[in-house]
Design a protein around this nucleic acid. Structure first.
Length: 567
RNA sequence: UGGGGAUUCGUCUAGUGGUAGGACAGCAGACUCUGGAUCUGUAUGCCGUGGUUCGAAUCCACGAUCCCCAGCCA
């Protein structure tokens, strides 16, 4: 046969994968690929961590390698078991699997201590008695070199003795540190005799009271990677400056060295992704907790109705590079819609009900209309939806004075009720204040199922719920948490919270949904036709249904209307 | 004359000396029992200035802008 099929161009790889490929080809690590995901258990995971996981776990999987989970628990002041558990739960939910048992930097405290002693013996580390304030003064500034600590030239014997006594708890917290002896004049401040160990009379969530001195992250991370045989130590940009320090430790310790490669963290528009700010939003009550559906935390996204598939797809699409970037929230939303469009069962729900009485429909009659569960998935089948004389439709689907291009119901107009009949509006019911509180309509019995035998067309199809069969529901509508795309970019003296969106949550208590949803379970997602994707909130209990709007459907009428209002 | 990074459509991202491509967002159409989905079409970009070259986003030089670092946090 003619073999004119063009060979598909080599899928482009990002700079990290290119480096890994190069190392595999050169045999630098014997062809191995072993990464690690190293969270600090001092907070909950968010979408930014999802990107890191996509890189760490993703690359390992693609190259037939392994990825460890290692908790960087070197600071007992901030870390807790609760976070360890929550982090593991979130990783599993996202669909990633770490190699073997979870690891902890604290597993290696004994080894790290021995290595510290080794550096002391080599004359490469010393115990320093400078106070934190003094140490800052001695460190110099960004443009001026630091100066040597007066304790820098203590004898090896004295350092050994002092360090041992630090370990035994003879000294007060903060009174001494163990420092690497490198170069107080280095342009890289990380090399100006960095602290390796500090005294902390604090109980550790895993090692209890065994230690009262704890290694700094910088003295732990590279060695942990070394111990675990990590080949590619993938981390964020701010550690680029630390790489020379890690390499110094590894070289002086004469142990295996992984290759560290740095990439840019994720930023997302209209939200914040710093642990500090997230913590502030939760602590100060701007949101309802770590799993508030407005938060970019994995727990928040999960409760909002985001699927692991959508999040992983998002991570794949944004790529990996070294630029500082902010991804548009619209891309994340697109990924969710794309996933749910394929999988979510369709259902009819009316958010803001408007009562409709069909005058010529027999009182007491109920018909079961056949509805398609998912047009994207024929195997999802059909269901029966009850229809009767009194219905609810969406308030937004009726206008007494319809603007141009408005295709829905209006006095005298005919529309189709999805999967049911054509109806025509013949009357408007108002309250004393003149508000529309109901409609009088007539239906055409010949249009049952939604098609007119005479071939006449109708401009639009609207959703509905039979009043007598309607299930009451609470619906929570979410909008972006902040009003500006870059809440981090605040003017001096301004607080990022000044940009919190006061309308990020709107609770609708009078919504109704079709009766088939009676046994919907928390976490299940549905498409409310014409409106968006909604998932059942865990607050649903004892027959009370609560839905979260995960993301609205694209709404081209909303665009037209917005344009009509003059942008 | 501190050190380290970065700069390609609005937003991300490919491109590694040979026609700047993709995605999302935008706009315009088609189709439609979801104004959904889908499908078409379309506009917008190489930080700047020089240089090398037949040819530069890509190589060189100079400059500009942005990000990170002065925790006994990670």
């Amino acid at each position: 046969m003619t073999d004119l099929t063009p060979t598909s161009p080599p899928a482009s790889v990002d700079f990290i994968r290119a480096a890994v490929l190069e190392d595999i080809r050169s045999g630098r690590f014997g062809g191995r690929v072993h990464t690690r995901f190293p969270p600090e258990p001092n907070g909950y995971l968010h979408i930014g961590h999802a990107k890191a996981m996509a890189v760490d776990f993703g690359i390992a999987a693609e190259f037939g390698g392994k990825c460890n989970l290692r908790f960087d628990d070197t600071n007992p002041v901030k870390e807790e078991q609760e976070y360890v558990d929550a982090i593991m739960e979130d990783i599993r939910w996202l669909g990633y699997q770490w190699d073997g048992e979870p690891r902890y930097a604290s597993d290696y405290f004994d080894q790290l201590y021995e290595w510290a002693v080794k550096l002391i013996k080599k004359g490469k580390a010393y115990v320093c008695d400078l106070t934190p304030e003094q140490m800052r003064e001695y460190r110099g500034t960004l443009t001026q070199p630091g100066k040597d600590s007066p304790y820098r030239n203590r004898s090896v014997a004295e350092n050994l003795d002092l360090f041992e006594r630090m370990r035994r708890g003879e000294f007060a917290e903060g009174s001494r540190t163990l420092r690497a002896k490198i170069d107080m004049a280095s342009g890289n401040i990380n090399l100006r005799d960095p602290v390796m160990y500090r005294i902390l009379h604090v109980e550790h969530h895993r090692t209890g009271n065994k230690w009262c001195i704890y290694p700094m992250y910088d003295f732990a991370h590279g060695q942990c990677d070394s111990i675990e045989g990590i080949t590619h130590s993938l981390c964020s940009l701010e550690y680029e400056d630390h790489r020379p320090l890690y390499e110094w430790f590894l070289k002086e310790l004469e142990i295996y060295a992984p290759r560290q490669i740095e990439f840019a963290r994720l930023n997302l528009s209209y939200t914040v992704l710093s642990k500090r700010k997230l913590l502030q939003l939760v602590k100060e009550g701007h949101v309802r907790g770590w799993d508030d559906p407005r938060l970019p935390t994995l727990r928040g996204l999960r409760r909002r109705g985001y699927t692991p598939e959508a999040i992983r797809d998002f991570c794949a699409r944004i790529g990996v590079a070294k630029n500082n970037t902010t991804i548009e929230l619209a891309l994340l939303e697109h990924c969710l819609r794309e996933d749910l469009n394929r999988r979510a069962p369709r259902v009819m729900g009316v958010l803001r009900p408007l009562k409709v009485v069909i005058e010529n429909y027999p009182e007491g009659q109920v018909e079961e209309m056949q509805a398609i569960n998912n047009p994207e998935d024929p195997s999802a089948g059909t269901r029966l939806v009850p229809f009767s004389r009194e219905l609810y439709i969406e308030q937004d689907d009726f206008r007494e004075n319809p603007p141009p291009k408005y295709y829905r119901l209006a006095p005298g107009r005919e529309v189709r009720l999805r999967y049911a009949y054509f109806i025509k509006c013949v009357g408007v019911v108002k309250d004393a204040a003149g508000n529309v509180i109901g409609l009088r309509c007539t239906y055409d019995p010949a249009t049952r199922g939604g098609d007119a035998p005479d071939g006449r067309k109708v401009k639009s199809t609207i959703h509905w719920v039979s009043a007598a069969h309607a299930l009451p529901a609470e619906v929570r509508l979410y909008d972006r948490l902040f009003t500006v795309p870059h809440p981090d970019d605040v003017d001096d003296g301004q607080d990022f919270k000044a940009y919190l969106n006061p309308h990020s949550l709107e609770v609708l208590t009078g919504s109704v949904v079709e009766p088939g949803l009676r046994n919907a379970q928390p976490g299940q997602s549905f498409q409310f036709e014409r409106l968006g994707y909604f998932c059942v909130d865990p607050d649903s209990a004892g027959g009370k249904l609560v839905f979260n709007r995960s993301v609205p459907l694209k709404d081209s009428w909303a665009k037209i209307e917005k344009a009509q209002r003059g942008e």
